[in-house]
Amino acid sequence: MIQSPTWSQIQPTPSSSNSETYSSFTNPSYVLGPGDQVQIRVYDYEEYTGQKVILPDGTIALPLIGSLNAAGLTIEQLEQALTTRLQTLLVNPVVTVELSTTRPVVVTVAGEVRRPGPTELQASATEGGVPTLSKALNAAGGITQDADIQQVTINRQTANSGSRTITVNLWEAISSSNAESDVILLEGDSIYVPRLSADAQIDRRLLARSSFAPETIRVRVVGEVKNPGEIQVPPESTLSSAVAIAGGPTEDARLSRVAYIRLNEEGRVEQETIDLRNLTDNYQIQEGDVIIVPKRSDVSVIDFAGRLFGPLGAFLNLINGANSLFQSF
């Protein structure tokens, strides 16, 4: 469940209509269109009951009454239209309509997500129904560790070429019990996840364990481990857990001088040497990190890295994405 925004967070552009309410943005009535599948039930009349897909021309077909336009209607409006049409054939028909599967909805997700860009969403009733903000973030690969989920914005085009922007605090969804309903998305919505400020008070480990985070991230563990190379680890993993996922250290591993190397936001390479002899630590791994477990006989990590990767310059190129250097592992 996601914390809904307050009125002050809804900021209309000059061309937007001020009559739009808070609930109409966060929980808009779903408008049917070609490709949607609905379950129609008419009490005591099985011949009218069943799954119907809205055809490319926007219609559905039922026995005796023929084609009926469904595109552009809400579920409630389609129920009423069916009831009106069936009243010419049946006595007091009781009609219910449920949305079974939604047509693909394309939204754009930008900012601190793993796969920014246009994202296609589709959900069945068993998956929770219509496309939502949380589903869009998951479809975009999940948020990065630097995502500021307290200020996620959604921009929506409205009638008369206007637009509205709403700011949603997703942090409430994972840090408190007061979170409200997920935000329903419409075709063409644009979502932006900003970067977390340096002084932001957010528990990154809790963020990494949330449903908005990716299931795994890629890191490389090289040297004296049983299965060196690129591995997939949960985003809340520590250095020692990454070593364990890589098969654990070999008998020749020098765990007192394990190094991890990271390319920071400014493009500079950071290196730190960690004592992992107890196979425990409090360092949270990040996408693209490199962990080096040297041999007992090596004088230094740099000496070991030089033998692994050649000159230091080539090693730094590795940090910047020269994946071919790892193909020998």
Rank of each mutant, 00 (worst) to 15 (best):
R220H: 09
D275R: 03
I302M: 11
P93T: 06
N317C: 02
G229N: 06
E272A: 10
I174G: 06
F315E: 07
N323S: 07
L255E: 03
K52D: 05
I143A: 06
A173I: 01
V97L: 05
N169Q: 08
F304N: 02
G223C: 04
I2P: 00
D146R: 14
V94P: 00
E272L: 04
E112D: 12
T59N: 12
P14S: 11
L99W: 01
S256R: 05
W7V: 14
I261W: 15
L239E: 01
R277Y: 02
L73S: 04
N138S: 10
S175E: 06
V290H: 09
P116M: 05
T102M: 12
T119F: 00
P93Y: 10
L32V: 02
S24C: 07
R103F: 07
Q3Y: 00
L64F: 15
Q150A: 01
P249G: 06
Q151N: 11
L186H: 09
N278Y: 04
E187Q: 14
I10C: 13
L186I: 10
G142R: 03
F326R: 04
K226N: 13
D182H: 08
E98L: 01
V53M: 09
Q284D: 02
Q284P: 00
D148S: 11
Y260C: 01
S67I: 07
E20D: 10
G72A: 04
T167N: 10
T144Y: 01
P235C: 05
L82E: 03
P118N: 08
I291K: 04
T280G: 13
S100A: 11
I261A: 00
P294A: 05
T59A: 08
Q87N: 13
T144L: 11
L64E: 11
E20R: 09
Q201V: 03
V233C: 07
Q271K: 12
N178R: 15
S17I: 02
F304Y: 08
D289C: 03
S175M: 11
I174T: 05
S177E: 15
M1K: 04
I75M: 05
S300M: 01
N320L: 00
T26M: 13
I285Q: 05
Q122H: 13
S210I: 12
G129L: 00
D298Y: 07
G288P: 07
N317H: 03
L62P: 11
R268C: 11
T83R: 10
E76T: 13
R114Y: 02
L170H: 02
D252N: 15
A81C: 01
S237F: 02
S134G: 08
Q3S: 14
G50L: 09
P14K: 12
E224N: 09
S210V: 05
E120G: 15
I2Y: 04
Y192C: 00
Q77R: 10
D298S: 10
I292R: 00
A259M: 01
I166K: 08
D298Q: 07
F212A: 03
E76D: 15
Y260F: 14
D148E: 12
A81N: 06
L68W: 04
P311R: 08
W171D: 12
S16C: 08
Q232Y: 15
P249K: 04
A213I: 03
D303C: 02
T83W: 08
V269N: 07
Q150K: 12
G162I: 01
E187V: 04
